[in-house]
Design a protein around this nucleic acid. Structure first.
Length: 885
RNA sequence: GGGCUCGUAGCUCAGUUGGUUAGAGCGCUUCCUUGACACGGAAGAGGUCGGAUGUUCGAGUCAUCUCGAGCCCACCA
């Protein structure tokens, strides 16, 4: 049982990580027995390396997955990556720019080749990283959204939806990013509050002396105005109904239209209408059959239609238009105005609303069943309040623009005919046009929104549209663990498309985790420069410590503040386990105990040693049982912080601080004959198993050492049984007795501390035990003496400094220190304690004397209060006795 | 404009369905280099739970209002 002196996780973590993969322990088999548990990874983008948010997500998933696997479930965790269309294309374009190249120069084919090369590289490093972090997924089932199989699924879904009329192509107003040169969906536009202006412009009303004042935040768009709207009920303007206005700068006459869109209470009550550059105006234009004059193009430059302003950038044009309006005395007012400006999520360029021909998914029919499955509980959100957010979005859902003018992604399976100009949509490239038979077909150049393929992930990865064994076994998946930032982008789309394509929800439960933040609660981001690289801290503190520090902060519904201090303390815990193991292993060797692993699967009672098992064994087995109960429940409910805290407390403050301390005494006394190794090793081994999902590396390392040479066991701790709570293993009596023993030891330490005695001074004392404590009696006296640092005799009252409880009197004979006033600290302590006791006692008495309380409170509440009151009173009496009051 | 979350010890946070001297980690004070561990051990100090009102026998835990912080959604020119 060799064990290195220092805990150095770097030495063994990479080895186990690789071994787990090499041995294929986590390869799922649909034919295996056990309850099914399946989960697909939220595929990381192949844009770069994984960050702390991924590590948190993967750690929570891994804990859950390892736990299910150890419980004997038929478990699948399917890994993979997302091609992340626009994001990846941007990364590669940026790299090209560094080489002085751009994608247009390279051409589509060569550009795609470059991105694939990048993808291979990035995908590999993501996989390496995940393996290093201990993720126990099934790499034999790894998928990528652009794989042939998944691409086939994408085409299949596209064709089906098209044929059902749920995908259509049309000319509508879309969000256009002039930098990315593509349309983007509403979700990809982020709104930023900006301090802008409201320009009030006067349009002369033809045939009158009046001028109609309109207000706008974008004066440059007036060049494309094709009407001015007023509210039909607005009395101020009854006189100009049916007239036209003269558009300044352009010298065009445009009609005054009557439309509810004009709010009489806003500004002058008149609105300029620019159908080509504003979504509202676009709709108004349709209602009133207005012409569309596009004055801004896809590059955000003014078009020829902008006449004198043609070729200018939109913001430069704004300045010039304002200046010209001022000069022509059309500008009546400029006021500061706060507005929210839509920007491209990826590059932060101000989005330009433009009319263009795009592909859309009709979402209303898909949203209805997607709402129902959450309402009726077929999909459950944890924490539950996220379902409200989900509903909110689903109720107000709008059609989804799915075409992107990019080169990286799934090419839209639609072919345009050069002869008849009609479209043929097909699963595979058609030879001839479906409408006219012409062979002059060209595939639509656009690709699909990256979320279209991610939306199919839970079933496309399992082989759909083929009816595979995996699909039959593992769909619907059991659980999805992801972040709220992609609730609409991804989760909502998966629900809609899962139900549509499979007729069944894609997962039964969605656990939404928090955000990883830095010490100042700031979001971690590259631009802020506050990112913690998982590989760096993993190397520094060990993966187990980082995992643990993440989990300890992972309370549902809260963000996770991650600091290196936390990782240090988590490492201290790992170090504690390591050293406790050293104690055990070294003494096994010294005592000639051979490696041994218990055959017990679940929590059990200790083996007896004669009449009964030693108190510390009975106690720790009962505590282990309680710990298992709590940890199992906590993981089940995604209360990862609670699972981690429970394990921490059990291992450190019960197993190490008390149990092993007692065992150490047994080791030196009676030549170690009273240790009862089988009990010690059983609880140790079960503790390792309980810890394994949280700290896989450390536990595997120690477990393998413990199991050296043991035949007929699991090959890895990750496939050993997860200990379950066992009603029969509760030992309340042992817990009571142990707590009395702990009370006596603590009392002894208190006295020593209050008397300020040197540790070398062995105090002589007397212990008087009362009925309840009899079983602790003589058998445990040596333990109390050693742990308390006293030399005790039992049973005879004597003079000295006293610490009393209803169970015992501990009397220390220390005439010297008492004479020097050393007992004062003890008196201060007792008086303070009495103050508190008196407070609680009086309030308890008040309640028990109140008929309203005794009449309405449940019996058990009253009982425990009475019981506690009796204990407080007994303690108060003892303290007063000691103080001589 | 609508929706959501948070405000508990110096710091970061727990506190499951309301139930009885309010918990943890880090930090702090004092003592201890005891052959597993100073990444350790022991004993302590320190909150009345943002504020107000209410419901209740009983509220950190529910309701209303209020102050403060943050997030999400939204086509208010």
């Amino acid at each position: 049982m060799e064990i290195e002196k220092v805990y150095e996780p770097q030495r063994f973590e990479p080895r186990w990580a690789q071994w787990w993969i090499d041995r294929g322990f986590y390869t799922a088999n649909p034919k295996n027995p056990g309850r099914m548990f399946s989960l697909v990874i939220p595929p990381p983008n192949v844009t770069g390396i994984l960050h702390m948010g991924h590590m948190l997500e993967h750690t929570e998933i891994d804990v859950t997955v390892r736990w299910h696997r150890m419980k004997g479930d038929n478990t699948l965790w399917l890994p993979g990556t997302d091609h992340a269309g626009i994001a990846t294309q941007m990364v590669v374009e940026r790299k090209l720019a560094e080489e002085g190249l751009d994608r247009r120069k390279l051409g589509r084919e060569e550009f795609e080749r470059r991105i694939w090369a990048w993808k291979e590289e990035s995908g590999d490093s993501i996989k390496r990283q995940m393996i290093r972090l201990g993720t126990s997924c099934d790499w034999s089932r790894e998928r990528f959204t652009l794989d042939e199989g998944l691409s086939r699924a994408v085409r299949e879904v596209f064709v089906r939806l098209y044929e059902k009329g749920l995908i259509y192509r049309g000319e509508y107003m879309v969000n256009w990013c002039p930098r990315c040169q593509t349309a983007i969906s509403d979700l990809e536009v982020v709104h930023e509050e900006t301090n802008g202006h409201l320009w009030h412009i006067a349009y002369p009303v033809n045939g009158t002396d009046e001028r109609l004042v309109v207000a706008t935040t974008r004066p440059e768009t007036m060049l494309g105005d094709t009407a001015v709207a007023i509210n039909p009920k607005d009395a101020r303007y009854f006189g100009i109904h049916g007239k036209t206005v003269r558009l300044p700068l352009m010298d065009r006459d445009i009609p005054i239209i009557l439309d509810e869109m004009a709010d009489p209470l806003f500004g002058s009550g008149a609105v300029k209408v620019t159908p080509a550059h504003d979504p509202n105006d676009f709709e108004a234009g349709r209602r009133h059959n207005l012409p569309l004059i596009q004055v801004i193009d896809g590059n955000a430059k003014m078009t020829a239609a902008a006449l004198a302003y043609a070729g200018l950038d939109r913001f430069e044009a704004r300045k010039r238009v304002v200046k010209a309006l001022q000069e022509g005395e059309y500008l009546v007012k400029i006021e500061p105005h706060q507005l929210s400006v839509g920007k491209c999520q990826r590059c932060k360029t101000v989005v330009e609303p433009l009319v263009s021909k795009q592909w859309f998914v009709k979402t209303k029919p898909l949203a209805e069943p997607a709402i129902r499955v959450v309402e009726d509980g077929r999909i459950q959100f944890v924490p539950d309040n996220w379902s409200k957010t989900y509903f909110e979005w689903m109720y107000n859902i709008r059609d989804w623009c799915i075409s992107r003018q990019l080169w990286w992604g799934h090419r839209i399976p639609a072919w345009h005919c050069a002869m008849c100009a009609k479209i043929t949509v097909a699963r595979e490239a058609p030879a001839v046009c479906r409408h006219c038979g012409s062979a002059e077909l060209a595939q639509d150049p656009d690709v699909l929104d990256t979320w279209f393929s991610s939306g199919l992930w839970p079933f496309s990865t399992l082989g759909w549209p083929d009816q595979t064994e995996d699909l039959a076994k593992y769909y619907p998946t059991s659980l999805l663990i992801t972040g709220f930032d992609i609730l609409f982008f991804w989760v909502a789309r998966m629900v809609m498309l899962g139900i549509e394509c499979m007729g069944e929800v894609p997962f039964h439960q969605v656990y939404i985790h928090g955000l990883v933040r830095d010490a100042d609660k700031q979001k971690m981001s590259k631009t802020r420069g506050n990112v913690i690289d998982p590989l760096v801290v993993t190397e520094k503190y060990g993966t187990d410590a980082v995992r643990l520090s993440l989990l300890l902060g992972a309370a549902p519904g809260t963000d996770i503040v991650l600091t290196e201090e936390r990782m240090e303390s988590a490492r201290a815990f790992a170090n504690k386990i390591w050293n406790a193991s050293r104690l055990i292993f070294m003494n096994m060797e010294r005592s000639g105990v051979s490696p041994w692993i218990t055959a017990e699967r679940d929590c059990c009672l200790p083996e007896k040693d004669g009449e009964t098992a030693p108190l510390e064994d009975r106690w720790i087995f009962s505590r282990l049982n309680r710990c298992a109960e709590q940890v199992n429940r906590a993981v089940e409910q995604h209360r990862y912080h609670e699972a981690a805290q429970t394990l921490w407390h059990f291992v450190w403050h019960e197993f190490c601080d008390w149990y092993l301390e007692v065992k150490k005494l047994r080791l030196v006394e009676n030549s170690g004959a009273d240790v009862h190794w089988r009990n010690l090793l059983t609880v140790y081994e079960m503790a390792l198993r309980l810890l394994h999902p949280v700290m896989p590396f450390l536990t595997e390392e120690l477990w393998q050492r413990l199991a050296t040479g043991v035949v007929d066991r699991a090959e890895t701790i990750s496939l050993a049984n997860y200990p379950q709570f066992n009603e029969a293993a509760v030992d309340a009596q042992a817990e009571d007795e142990m707590s009395i023993l702990q009370g006596i030891v603590t009392a002894a330490r208190e006295l020593k501390s209050d008397l300020k005695v040197d540790k070398k001074t062995i105090l002589v004392g007397t212990l008087v035990l009362r009925e309840k404590a009899v079983t602790v009696g003589a058998a445990q006296l040596a333990v109390i003496e050693k742990l308390g640092g006293l030399k005790l005799t039992l049973g005879t009252q004597a003079a000295g400094v006293v610490r009393s409880s209803p169970e015992f009197d501990l009397i220390v004979q220390a005439p010297d220190v008492v004479a020097e006033g050393g007992g004062d600290a003890q008196k201060v302590r007792l008086r303070k304690e009495n103050e508190q006791l008196e407070k609680v006692i009086s309030s308890s008495n008040r309640q028990l004397g109140d008929e309203k309380f005794t009449g309405r409170a449940p019996a058990h509440v009253i009982d425990t209060l009475r019981q506690k009151l009796a204990e407080y009173e007994a303690q108060l009496r003892k303290n007063k006795e000691v103080l001589g009051e």
